[in-house]
């Protein structure tokens, strides 16, 4: 629960800008391609060199370790990349599992060797949910060394909201379509429990049904966690559906959309 505030942020292609997004508020950003929308999001997430400061609540970015900042201010890029072979390996699910080698080890040994990922995953999940649940959500203090991750049951709930069964966790990344990757990337991002969200056209490659699912998951998370959201979108209907402020990039500046 914290506002996201840009303070003379000078990203590539844009004039230095001040901007405040209150906790729980939604701000839509549009602009011609190449006008610097993605560059702005990258600058806020601190991926490219630039000048200016960003505040998350009372904490300036420069006072936070970069890794913690990027966890808190979650950027969903237009193109998603994956580093492990299976979907589940990208989620805190597996970190929990590695902390409890007993449950993981016994389950993998007990499960059939191949072809039954569903059973294996469900057994994992049963083991996880039996455990006492970790802290439910990230609180906004910067002193906390490692912010809380989502619980396995939250992740399963989110997966269901965008149309996936839990067995997707055992799927290989190579098998996924680009739309599936895009939807799963949102769950991957939420699983790090960000306090602010930067979404770069999260529904661009999705059919209307899945687009609506993504919209409703983001809305659910926003209402539950009161996160500030900067959403790049070209779809006026989407803006109308979800409400919120809308700005557009014109001549390297942000201007209100009529």
């Amino acid at each position: 629960m914290a506002a996201l505030r840009l303070d003379r942020l000078h990203s590539r292609l844009l004039e230095p800008l001040d901007l405040l997004i209150e906790a729980g508020a939604l701000l839509f950003l549009s602009g011609a391609s190449g006008s610097g929308k993605s560059q702005l999001l990258r600058a806020i997430a601190d991926l490219d060199p630039h000048t200016g400061e960003v505040w998350l609540g009372d904490t300036p970015r420069s006072r936070m370790p970069p890794a913690l900042w990027r966890r808190r201010v979650g950027l969903l890029p237009a193109e998603t990349c994956w580093w492990a072979e299976e979907v589940g390996a990208h989620l805190p699910l597996m970190e929990h599992a590695s902390q409890h080698p007993l449950s993981l080890g016994s389950n993998t040994r007990a499960s059939p060797p191949a072809g039954q990922p569903i059973g294996r995953v469900l057994k994992h999940l049963a083991a996880f949910t039996r455990r006492s649940r970790p802290r439910q959500s990230a609180t906004g203090t910067a002193h906390e060394p490692e912010p809380a991750s989502a619980t396995p049951s939250q992740i399963i709930d989110w997966l269901a909201r965008i149309g996936f069964e839990p067995d997707v966790l055992g799927w290989s990344i190579a098998r996924l379509s680009s739309g599936e990757r895009q939807r799963l990337a949102l769950v991957r991002l939420l699983a790090q429990m960000p306090t602010a969200l930067l979404l770069d056209e999260p529904t661009a490659n999705l059919d209307p049904g899945n687009g609506a699912r993504v919209e409703s998951l983001v809305t659910h998370y926003r209402q539950q966690q009161q996160v500030a959201i900067l959403w790049v979108s070209h779809d006026p209907l989407q803006r109308a559906r979800l409400g919120g402020r809308a700005l557009a990039i014109r001549n390297a500046r942000l201007e209100p959309v009529a």
């Binding site: 997430a45 991926l47 970069p66 890794a67 913690l68 990027r70 966890r71 979650g74 950027l75 890029p77 193109e79 998603t80 990349c81 994956w82 580093w83 990208h90 991957r188 991002l189 790090q192």
Partner: peptide, 20 residues
């Protein structure tokens, strides 16, 4: 580049992100 930046965005430190 994309994978390394994705790992950074997931809250990994630079040496975790480039480890492989």
């Amino acid at each position: 580049r994309g994978v390394i930046e994705a790992r950074l965005l997931a809250g990994q430190t630079w040496d975790q992100a480039i480890t492989s």
